[in-house]
Design a protein around this nucleic acid. Structure first.
Lengths: 247, 247
DNA sequence: AGTCGCCCGACAGGAAAACGACAGGCCGGC
DNA sequence: GCCGGCCTGTCGTTTTCCTGTCGGGCGACT
């Protein structure tokens, strides 16, 4: 935290600087790419040594750190990072049935962890949350808003006007992605790739299905009045967008 | 708390300044990090010397002091602190079967102590209490309130409406954490990490269990009427939140 | 009018949460 | 110092409800 440069904040003026540490280059690149696409600066390291060097050099605002590294293990990296006085927040990656238990305690300081394989949008969401929290006191709520639809990321409360919707985890994630990118049109492949775990096999019509379920929940209204203005638009042959219908 | 430092309105008048003294860097950092996320300013010292230097320099409002230090021991630090005229309240950390009895005598002046390993939420709670008490006479009670649920942190009295609940220590801690963060949704990992001692292994379903027991106590009503409005909500696939049910 | 893409009902498998029952440990009373 | 009760966490079962597959139908674009 204490470099002369203003502290990272959510949606701040300066670009967030992210260091990704994973010995599997495809994974590291995946994360880095997504982050860059969000407008962040990202660099990757494939070993603990390199990570420590880059941490000193690049001075990231946040670190994504795989616990399974060839040389120093993730905890070792964390130790040496902290010992060198850096307070950078860290989000860990761990294999499913790996060190999950040893990971206990990581959310305590405000850091967080995620199990592999993860969904990129979820990772980004957690990174944003951690950044927001570390930005200091009275960090403000993160509320997404599109037309009369609101999503509070802290309470996970989603409302269409006054009415509160109850969404399943998948529906929530898809909707968040749509809201965050609104009014952009997203292909089904993009949605699938961002919201589902990487490596998800089912190249099926899951996305269509979830969108369908979402629509029902978004547009249903009091029994008397009928359907509210539909917010999720189909762009035939391409994908979906969340926005008011064009007139 | 009193150095005439001007501060923005809103938030408490000034940021609390915390000095953490522990020769084990991970522990010191843990405490410092949690405090920062609460909006405090925190610095750490890993030796008695450094602690004394920082005490004069940083002028903390409160000190967390481990009694097992390499150079000067905790008592020595305390002595020299007091001799230099500071009245800063101190919360001591001691090993389980350590000098617990000798510490007891020290907790007079509004100071307090905690046995290692501790739970971060409990430490923060004690720090807040000590601060509140040291703020002088006529300090106000700390009462948490969510819907018709109240928790008096001084008397440890918890009420649902008129009815007084009797909670076990663990239940009390979990509920306090939920109330303090209400209406935010907390993951089970967060609850586990904040309410249980660091180093607690059990990655089991303890949290679910305690929540289940809490619910029974919160929602039970007079024999005639049946269950009150449930206040602890499950957010499937994510965690729990304490708040009024959605309409 | 035909074709292709999308929508969505129905269903099954499975994951997550709730909770009853039990055992070990701690503490307080005697 | 011994006994008993309460608290805590583990295990395993039950319940809930989420998710993805299949396939028929329908609407849109050509």
């Amino acid at each position: 935290m204490g470099r002369g440069r203003p502290v990272a904040q959510y949606e701040r003026v300066e670009k967030v600087r992210l260091l990704v540490v994973d010995d599997d280059p495809p994974i590291a690149d995946l994360v880095a790419t997504v982050a860059r696409y969000e407008g962040w600066e990202a660099v990757t390291a494939n070993s603990g040594e390199q990570a420590l060097r880059l941490a000193g050099d690049f001075r990231p605002d946040i670190v994504v750190l795989d616990l399974m590294l060839p040389d120093v293990d993730g905890f070792g990296v964390l130790d040496r990072l902290r010992r060198s006085g850096t307070m950078v927040p860290v989000v860990f990656l761990t294999a499913r049935d790996g060190v999950a238990d040893r990971v206990a305690g990581l959310t305590r300081g405000g850091d967080d962890y995620l199990v592999k394989p993860f969904a990129v949008e979820e990772l980004m969401a957690r990174l944003r949350t951690v950044l927001r929290r570390s930005a200091g006191p009275g960090f403000q709520r993160s509320v997404l808003r599109v037309a009369d639809l609101t999503m509070d990321e802290d309470t996970r409360e989603v409302r269409r006007g006054e009415r509160r919707l109850s969404l399943t985890p998948t529906e929530y994630e898809v909707l968040r992605y749509l809201m965050r990118k609104s009014p952009t049109v997203l292909t089904k492949a993009q949605i699938l790739d961002h919201v589902w775990e990487y490596g998800f096999g089912g190249r099926s019509n899951v996305v269509e299905l979830v969108v369908s379920r979402l629509r029902r929940k978004l547009d249903e209204t009091a029994p008397d009045a009928d359907g509210a203005e539909p917010l999720i638009q189909t762009v035939r042959g391409f994908g979906y967008a969340l926005r008011r219908a064009a007139r």
